[in-house]
């Protein structure tokens, strides 16, 4: 009983909707034809203006980015420019670079890096010559901070290790236990 009345109801609705939809489609097609003719010169202008804007913005930002990374690269000594592309990129983004605390004053600072969830955080850090970096292991497994110039050996969970940087340069390092844990310290 209920199903048959539903069926009837639906058939009626479908029929009504069918004609409605057809009319609607016809109207839309008409509109589309009109729009195509009328809008063409206008859309061309819009495209030209957008294109110029994108080009201009792209040009400016690329110049800015190049200047920025060039400046930070200049300050590192030439023989240690072993920065991988990944670190250069994150360096170009000021938000990701942790500045040393005593950056304004000339007093040496202690900068903190945590080892957490199998990552160094922050992965790229910028300090001044004379600053000390402290690594703290917040994971439940031991880690190391190891480069050609320094080696923490095993840092147990909840323990820290410090190293003072006295020469400028870029120092990529990793955890010898977990080779995919990679990071870098940039000393100005």
């Amino acid at each position: 009983m209920i199903s048959s009345s539903l069926e009837q109801h639906r058939q009626g609705v479908d029929y009504e909707e069918g004609t409605d939809v057809q009319n609607l489609h016809a109207a839309i097609r008409r509109d589309e034809r009109d729009l195509q003719v009328r809008i063409k010169p206008f859309s061309l202008w819009v495209m030209v203006v957008c294109g110029l804007t994108i080009f201009f913005v792209g040009f400016c930002s690329s110049r800015y980015a190049v200047n920025f990374s060039a400046a930070s690269l200049d300050s590192t000594s030439p023989p240690q420019s072993e920065l991988n592309p990944q670190t250069v990129q994150s360096n170009a983004n000021p938000a990701r670079v942790a500045q040393s605390v005593g950056a304004e004053a000339d007093t040496p600072a202690v900068v903190h890096i945590v080892m957490k969830n199998m990552k160094f955080d922050p992965a790229t850090i910028e300090v001044k010559s004379g600053d000390t970096v402290e690594w703290t292991n917040e994971d439940i497994t031991p880690h190391t901070a190891t480069s050609a110039k320094f080696d923490s050996a095993s840092i147990e969970p909840e323990k820290s290790w410090r190293h003072t940087f006295t020469e400028p340069g870029s120092f990529p390092y990793n955890c010898t236990f977990h080779p995919d844990m990679k990071a870098a310290v940039l000393v100005k």
Partner: peptide
Amino acid sequence: DLLESARPIFASHLEHAKQ
């Protein structure tokens, strides 16, 4: 919490083993 903090350890081991 412990299981969730063990997960990135296992994921890191998997990557290491794949390498």
